[in-house]
Protein backbone atom coordinates (compact mmCIF):
# COMPACT_ATOMS: atom_id res chain seq x y z
CA UNK A 1 0.00 0.00 0.00
CA UNK A 2 1.34 3.38 -0.93
CA UNK A 3 0.96 6.48 1.06
CA UNK A 4 0.60 9.88 -0.48
CA UNK A 5 -1.37 12.93 0.56
CA UNK A 6 -2.41 15.49 -1.99
CA UNK A 7 -4.28 18.75 -1.80
CA UNK A 8 -6.73 19.61 -4.53
CA UNK A 9 -8.46 22.75 -5.72
CA UNK A 10 -11.50 22.42 -7.91
CA UNK A 11 -14.41 24.21 -9.49
CA UNK A 12 -17.72 22.61 -10.46
CA UNK A 13 -20.42 24.13 -12.62
CA UNK A 14 -24.00 22.91 -12.97
CA UNK A 15 -25.16 24.25 -16.36
CA UNK A 16 -28.66 22.80 -16.21
CA UNK A 17 -31.48 24.25 -14.15
CA UNK A 18 -33.07 21.77 -11.79
CA UNK A 19 -36.76 20.99 -12.18
CA UNK A 20 -39.23 23.35 -10.63
CA UNK A 21 -40.71 22.70 -7.26
CA UNK A 22 -43.77 24.41 -5.90
CA UNK A 23 -44.65 25.98 -2.62
CA UNK A 24 -47.31 28.25 -1.21
CA UNK A 25 -46.93 31.72 0.12
CA UNK A 26 -49.43 33.33 2.44
CA UNK A 27 -50.13 36.75 1.05
CA UNK A 28 -52.03 39.55 2.64
CA UNK A 29 -53.54 42.38 0.63
CA UNK A 30 -52.28 45.61 2.15
CA UNK A 31 -55.65 47.28 1.98
CA UNK A 32 -57.71 44.58 3.66
CA UNK A 33 -57.53 42.11 6.53
CA UNK A 34 -58.05 39.00 4.41
CA UNK A 35 -55.21 36.74 3.34
CA UNK A 36 -54.84 33.76 1.07
CA UNK A 37 -52.27 31.36 -0.25
CA UNK A 38 -50.55 31.86 -3.57
CA UNK A 39 -49.04 28.99 -5.51
CA UNK A 40 -45.42 29.66 -6.30
CA UNK A 41 -42.71 27.78 -8.12
CA UNK A 42 -38.99 27.80 -7.69
CA UNK A 43 -36.03 26.70 -9.73
CA UNK A 44 -32.34 26.54 -8.97
CA UNK A 45 -29.71 27.13 -11.64
CA UNK A 46 -26.17 28.29 -12.37
CA UNK A 47 -24.63 26.57 -9.36
CA UNK A 48 -20.88 27.00 -8.99
CA UNK A 49 -18.83 25.23 -6.35
CA UNK A 50 -15.27 26.13 -5.34
CA UNK A 51 -13.60 23.41 -3.31
CA UNK A 52 -10.46 22.52 -1.42
CA UNK A 53 -9.88 18.75 -1.43
CA UNK A 54 -7.54 16.97 0.97
CA UNK A 55 -6.86 13.66 -0.75
CA UNK A 56 -5.28 10.37 0.23
CA UNK A 57 -3.65 8.12 -2.34
CA UNK A 58 -4.67 4.55 -1.63
CA UNK A 59 -2.62 3.41 -4.62
CA UNK A 60 -1.19 5.30 -7.61
CA UNK A 61 -4.46 4.76 -9.45
CA UNK A 62 -6.84 5.18 -6.49
CA UNK A 63 -7.63 8.45 -4.75
CA UNK A 64 -9.90 9.16 -1.79
CA UNK A 65 -10.76 12.78 -1.12
CA UNK A 66 -12.82 15.17 0.96
CA UNK A 67 -14.39 18.35 -0.41
CA UNK A 68 -14.80 21.52 1.57
CA UNK A 69 -15.92 24.63 -0.17
CA UNK A 70 -18.15 27.47 -1.15
CA UNK A 71 -21.24 27.24 -3.33
CA UNK A 72 -23.38 29.83 -5.04
CA UNK A 73 -26.55 29.42 -7.12
CA UNK A 74 -29.49 31.34 -8.53
CA UNK A 75 -32.92 30.79 -7.01
CA UNK A 76 -35.70 31.82 -9.36
CA UNK A 77 -39.21 32.08 -7.95
CA UNK A 78 -42.39 33.12 -9.65
CA UNK A 79 -46.11 33.18 -9.34
CA UNK A 80 -47.86 30.30 -11.06
CA UNK A 81 -50.50 31.66 -13.41
CA UNK A 82 -53.46 31.54 -13.56
CA UNK A 83 -53.59 31.86 -9.84
CA UNK A 84 -56.50 30.94 -7.59
CA UNK A 85 -55.78 33.95 -5.47
CA UNK A 86 -57.00 36.25 -8.20
CA UNK A 87 -53.83 38.15 -8.84
CA UNK A 88 -54.07 40.20 -11.97
CA UNK A 89 -50.34 40.61 -12.36
CA UNK A 90 -47.63 38.22 -11.41
CA UNK A 91 -43.95 38.39 -10.91
CA UNK A 92 -40.72 36.51 -11.40
CA UNK A 93 -37.61 37.21 -9.40
CA UNK A 94 -34.12 35.86 -8.93
CA UNK A 95 -32.22 35.64 -5.68
CA UNK A 96 -28.54 34.78 -5.38
CA UNK A 97 -27.71 32.28 -2.70
CA UNK A 98 -24.36 31.51 -1.14
CA UNK A 99 -23.55 28.52 1.00
CA UNK A 100 -21.03 25.99 2.14
CA UNK A 101 -20.31 22.57 0.68
CA UNK A 102 -18.99 19.39 2.20
CA UNK A 103 -18.44 16.17 0.29
CA UNK A 104 -16.33 13.10 -0.26
CA UNK A 105 -15.36 11.08 -3.25
CA UNK A 106 -13.27 8.33 -4.79
CA UNK A 107 -11.41 8.28 -8.09
CA UNK A 108 -10.09 5.22 -9.90
CA UNK A 109 -7.97 5.25 -13.02
CA UNK A 110 -9.55 3.13 -15.73
CA UNK A 111 -7.19 3.80 -18.62
CA UNK A 112 -4.17 5.89 -19.44
CA UNK A 113 -5.12 9.30 -18.01
CA UNK A 114 -8.81 8.52 -17.82
CA UNK A 115 -10.59 7.83 -14.56
CA UNK A 116 -14.03 7.18 -13.14
CA UNK A 117 -15.27 8.66 -9.92
CA UNK A 118 -18.14 8.68 -7.45
CA UNK A 119 -18.84 11.56 -5.15
CA UNK A 120 -21.42 12.68 -2.58
CA UNK A 121 -22.02 16.31 -1.66
CA UNK A 122 -24.19 18.28 0.71
CA UNK A 123 -24.72 22.02 0.32
CA UNK A 124 -26.40 24.33 2.80
CA UNK A 125 -27.21 27.84 1.63
CA UNK A 126 -27.59 30.92 3.76
CA UNK A 127 -31.14 32.17 3.97
CA UNK A 128 -31.97 34.54 1.16
CA UNK A 129 -34.90 36.90 1.31
CA UNK A 130 -37.51 36.25 -1.34
CA UNK A 131 -40.18 38.83 -1.83
CA UNK A 132 -42.65 39.99 -4.38
CA UNK A 133 -45.70 42.11 -4.95
CA UNK A 134 -48.62 42.07 -7.34
CA UNK A 135 -52.18 43.27 -7.59
CA UNK A 136 -55.51 41.62 -6.85
CA UNK A 137 -57.79 44.04 -8.62
CA UNK A 138 -56.86 47.41 -7.22
CA UNK A 139 -55.36 45.96 -4.05
CA UNK A 140 -51.64 45.52 -3.67
CA UNK A 141 -50.54 42.10 -2.45
CA UNK A 142 -47.09 41.37 -1.19
CA UNK A 143 -45.08 38.72 0.57
CA UNK A 144 -41.65 38.28 2.02
CA UNK A 145 -39.94 35.28 3.53
CA UNK A 146 -36.52 33.78 4.15
CA UNK A 147 -36.57 30.06 3.33
CA UNK A 148 -33.76 27.65 4.00
CA UNK A 149 -32.48 25.98 0.82
CA UNK A 150 -30.22 22.96 0.75
CA UNK A 151 -29.13 20.30 -1.72
CA UNK A 152 -27.67 16.83 -1.61
CA UNK A 153 -26.33 14.85 -4.51
CA UNK A 154 -24.59 11.63 -5.42
CA UNK A 155 -22.57 11.88 -8.62
CA UNK A 156 -20.72 9.48 -10.85
CA UNK A 157 -18.66 10.48 -13.82
CA UNK A 158 -15.50 10.30 -15.87
CA UNK A 159 -12.53 12.56 -16.18
CA UNK A 160 -9.07 13.00 -17.60
CA UNK A 161 -5.86 13.87 -15.77
CA UNK A 162 -3.04 15.76 -17.45
CA UNK A 163 0.04 17.76 -16.61
CA UNK A 164 0.92 21.34 -17.49
CA UNK A 165 1.95 20.23 -20.97
CA UNK A 166 -1.28 18.39 -21.62
CA UNK A 167 0.25 14.94 -21.20
CA UNK A 168 -1.43 12.19 -19.23
CA UNK A 169 0.55 10.66 -16.32
CA UNK A 170 3.08 7.95 -16.99
CA UNK A 171 1.78 4.50 -15.99
CA UNK A 172 3.45 3.14 -12.86
Amino acid sequence: MTNDWLIGFGVDYHPLAQDNGTFKVLTNPASSHSSFYQNMSYQVSNRVNLSVMPAYTLAPDKLLYLKLGYSTQTLKYRQIAPDAGGLTSGFERNARQNGMLIGAGYKQTVAHGFYGFVEANSVLYAKATIQGSAYAGAHAVCFSSRPLVSAMNVLFGVGYTFDAFGHSPTPQ
Binding site: T2, D4, L6, G10, A55, T57, A59, P60, D61, L63, K107, T109, Y115, F117, E119, N153, V154, L155, F156, G157, V158, G159, Y160, T161, F162, D163, A164, P169, P171, Q172
Partner: peptide
Protein backbone atom coordinates in the same frame (compact mmCIF):
# COMPACT_ATOMS: atom_id res chain seq x y z
CA UNK B 1 4.76 5.61 -6.02
CA UNK B 2 3.52 8.82 -7.48
CA UNK B 3 -0.22 9.33 -7.65
CA UNK B 4 -1.62 9.34 -11.15
CA UNK B 5 -3.98 12.09 -10.07
CA UNK B 6 -1.27 14.64 -9.45
CA UNK B 7 -1.73 17.39 -11.98
CA UNK B 8 -4.75 18.95 -13.63
CA UNK B 9 -8.06 17.34 -14.38
CA UNK B 10 -11.29 17.88 -16.25
CA UNK B 11 -14.39 15.83 -15.64
CA UNK B 12 -18.10 15.45 -16.29
CA UNK B 13 -20.66 13.81 -14.01
CA UNK B 14 -24.32 13.14 -13.46
CA UNK B 15 -26.31 11.32 -10.81
Amino acid sequence: AESEFKGFYGQVATG
